[in-house]
Simulated assay, not measured.
Amino acid sequence: MSTDHGDRPVTGVRLQKVLAGAGVASRRVIEQYIVEGRIRVNGAVVTELGTRIDPEHDLVDVDGTAVQLDAGKRYVMLNKPTGVVSSMKDERGRPDLRRFTREWPERLYNVGRLDADTSGLLLLTNDGDLAHVLAHPSFGVTKVYIAKVDGRVSPQTIAALTRGITLEDGPIAADKARLRDSSHGSSLVELTLHSGRNRIVRRMMAAVGHPVTELVRRQFGPLRLGTLPSGHARELGKIELGALLTLARRDSPAEATPGEAREKTRDHGQHDDQENG
């Protein structure tokens, strides 16, 4: 980051030009934001209109919300149907994610996985840095699932899920759990978890005596599935993307360096073998 000072040579692009190009607002409005101290570059508030940045390396946020300066980055929400594996190319020939990405020219990859029998929200992107952070074991992005299970789930069972139970790979507790419905010999349970352990929802419910018959992920971090139909995909809106980038930048683990992420971009559908459903 640099600022203009007399005739000395400067580098970079003016901040207001970069943010206008990113669709934040007009240059005039952005200049007002700068004067008001509403914009930070690499965590530092900037108030000089001559501020220049390197869009490829500097991180910018407006009113505390991160901004993506690279127009080549794509972020897509998919409502994955059951029967589809979370891979861009399945070696066993099973239905994979490629059919849902054909309308975008970029080569997209899934962030984490849902097992074939689990439906719901899956994030697809070509942003290797973001994907590596979100898939990193220490990140623990919050996910919300709705599970249809056998039997009538009691309040005591809901309490046990939040208090904690012990599985074969150690103790686990839901961040939140609530019973949404119980009728005709089955129940709907909503679980909020930040664990990325393999098939964790199914194993937790089986451990308390209520095997899962259907499972859908409704939320991934700040992203909500909403009314997106099964088998459909859409790009994230500006507010959704800002919230996701802000979360990732704030809580990025030290190990998830940009260089490391770029090297691993093409493997996001494969290196994270945790099937969160």
Rank of each mutant, 00 (worst) to 15 (best):
G128T: 06
L134V: 03
D175Q: 10
S119T: 07
G140D: 08
D117Q: 11
L59H: 13
S187D: 06
G93K: 09
L124T: 03
R152L: 09
G64R: 08
R163W: 00
I172Q: 00
A160Q: 10
T142W: 06
L179G: 15
P155H: 07
D115R: 10
V149W: 05
V67P: 13
P137T: 04
L59A: 11
D150G: 01
D115M: 06
H184P: 04
R107L: 10
D61C: 07
L114H: 03
R74L: 10
M88R: 13
H184Q: 15
D61I: 06
L134R: 03
D58E: 07
R152F: 04
F100T: 01
S119A: 12
H57D: 09
I146H: 15
M77S: 02
G64S: 03
G93F: 08
G112A: 02
T65W: 09
R163L: 00
D63N: 14
S154E: 15
L78R: 08
T65Y: 02
V111S: 03
A71G: 05
H132N: 11
L108R: 11
I165K: 06
T125N: 11
A131V: 03
A135T: 12
D175S: 11
T65G: 04
R152G: 10
T65H: 05
V149S: 05
R180D: 13
